Simulated assay, not measured.
Amino acid sequence: MAVSEANNGRGELRILENLDELRTDLADYIAELSEAAVKERGAFAIALSGGSLIDLMGKLCEAPYNKTVDWAKWHIFWADERVVAKNHSDSNYKLAKDGLLSKVPIVPGHVHSINDSVSAEEAADDYMFVIRQLVKTRMVNVADISDCPKFDLILLGMGPDGHIASLFPNHSALDETDEWVTFIIDSPKPPPERITFTLLVINSASNVAMVVTGESKAEAVHLAVDNIGPDCPSLPARLVHPTEGKLVWFLDKQAASKLDGLQFSD
């Protein structure tokens, strides 16, 4: 069972019966966007986050996707990363490499990880330089309105506090309006030092997918999606509004359980 509907201008909702259905629907969605981007401009620029997201992308390693997706045209980025060694258990790069990248034929030079041997501030500056060079060659598209990188797809999870990437509630990084990539050294979740895409870049993407599962996220999903008036807490997830693109929420029934006015259909 799946529900697909618009909800108060907060994007398309896809609510799946269980995790297996969600994994399949997410794989179909990513494969379709990949095919369209490769056909249109010869490359697919995708940015990942950490958490359970890589596991939920796991179907892409299986048939038919492992054979039908044009992996050689993928360019992989990270919407946020912990400033730790690439082999560290907290590294989003390691999570993605172990769970996805090592299982499909992606070109190693197309995997754009951060410089993990410098400070968080230097790593953010370095990552922005890397992206800027790829925008110049159009491996990453450019947004018409913001002149920002326009990623074909940014995949985000969400924490129970409503944080996305490494943009946490009431953190000054949410107010960054000039830079594409910023850094934090005081993350409320360990490890403290991270780099993260800013809202400017997230909202410049062609497509943003918010992938959220589990009952512990249900209240945050409600606060991020539903139209609950001026007293709504300012969750980072609620600030995702792609300017020229499309927002899709992938939810299991537990994460969607507190949404207003749901209509399930078999």
Rank of each mutant, 00 (worst) to 15 (best):
D161A: 03
A120I: 04
V111L: 12
D125N: 08
A123L: 09
L156S: 04
P149A: 06
P160D: 11
M158R: 01
S113A: 13
E121C: 13
M139E: 06
P108L: 04
I106Q: 08
F129M: 09
V135G: 02
I114S: 07
V140N: 05
G109N: 10
G157T: 03
L167E: 03
R138F: 10
D126K: 10
G109H: 10
D161E: 06
S146N: 13
L155R: 01
R132E: 10
H112Y: 08
G109R: 10
S113W: 08
V142H: 05
A123G: 02
A124W: 07
I131R: 02
G159W: 03
F168E: 13
I154V: 15
A124S: 07
I131L: 15
K136M: 11
H112E: 07
G157C: 08
V142Y: 05
L134H: 09
D144H: 13
R138T: 15
F129P: 00
L155I: 06
L134P: 04
L134A: 07
H110D: 04
S117W: 08
L167A: 05
R138V: 11
H110F: 02
I154E: 03
I114E: 08
M128I: 01
N141M: 14
I145G: 08
G157M: 04
N141G: 13
V135K: 06
R132P: 01
A124D: 07
F151T: 05
G109V: 09
A143Q: 09
V140W: 05
S117P: 03
D152E: 14
S117Q: 15
K150S: 14
D116Y: 03
V111P: 07
H112A: 07
V107E: 12
D147V: 07
V140K: 04
P149N: 06
M128D: 14
L153S: 13
P108Q: 08
D147H: 13
C148H: 12
P108T: 06
M158H: 00
L156F: 05
V130F: 05
P169A: 12
H112F: 09
F129R: 12
N115W: 09
P108R: 04
H110E: 00
E121F: 12
D144I: 15
S113D: 15
D161S: 06
A124C: 04
H163V: 02
R138H: 14
A143L: 11
F129N: 10
A143I: 11
H110M: 01
H163L: 00
I114W: 09
I131V: 14
I145R: 09
A120F: 03
V135A: 10
M128K: 14
M139H: 05
S113K: 06
A120Q: 04
V130R: 12
H163M: 00
L167D: 04
V118S: 10
G157R: 02
P160V: 13
I106F: 07
R132I: 00
G162H: 01
N170I: 09
M139C: 01
I164F: 05
S146E: 14
S117V: 07
L153F: 08
D116M: 02
L156V: 05
D125I: 00
V142F: 03
